[in-house]
Amino acid sequence: MGPVLQIENLTKRYGKNKTAVDGLSLEVCAGDIYGFIGQNGAGKTTTLRALAGILAFDEGEIRICGHSVRKEPVKCKAEMAYISDDPDLYDYLTGIQYINFIADIFGVNEEVRAERIAKYAEMFRIAGDLGSLIGSYSHGMKQKTAIIGALVHDPKLLVLDEPFVGLDPEAAFKLKEVFREMCARGAAIFFSTHVLDVAEKLCNKIAIIREGKLVANGPIEEVRGGEGLEAVFMEVLGSDAR
């Protein structure tokens, strides 16, 4: 089985002088929980936005389940879900209207969506608020709503930018459970984080990006090489790729 996500030589420039992502290549396979770490401004969000089909890129290729993001964006997006670091949802919809909207776009039938919404709404303890306008939600509630919207169509690839920011400890724990459950079913998770501890305990693979370039990448044991992830991270920030 081919990789769920394949990034080849991705390059994204802003203007003439700023190269945000520089020749980045990696593969995420079914069952992977892939952590993507780097400093602020290293190019994580740019990479995630490019593979979500939101941001046009200058060079390289991104394939999701074999489809090119550049040539077949709709097919790619149908296989994945993306949650940004700032869940700027539609304040004028209620939580349930938002999730219904996402389910309609992905063509999830009524029975299946009802079952999944009930399951995840209970799991994240937000069922009692889904009838309220999103504008009244806290950051964490918006994040939970965005997560349910992403899970309602059971994507093959889940791409998340800082997914644990704003979540309460119980919800963060549940989300990690969901990640493991999805991967056990053959899906893949690719997410950025600044919390090295989470990455170390949750991920089976890690990529570290510095100034737009991948400086470490692979199974976590290989990247770590007997050290803690924090030590490796600090080391690669000061040196070139291992």
Partner: peptide, 8 residues
């Protein structure tokens, strides 16, 4: 301020 706490 907006009313919150409504289920579905």
């Amino acid at each position: 301020a907006r009313a919150a706490g409504a289920g579905y």
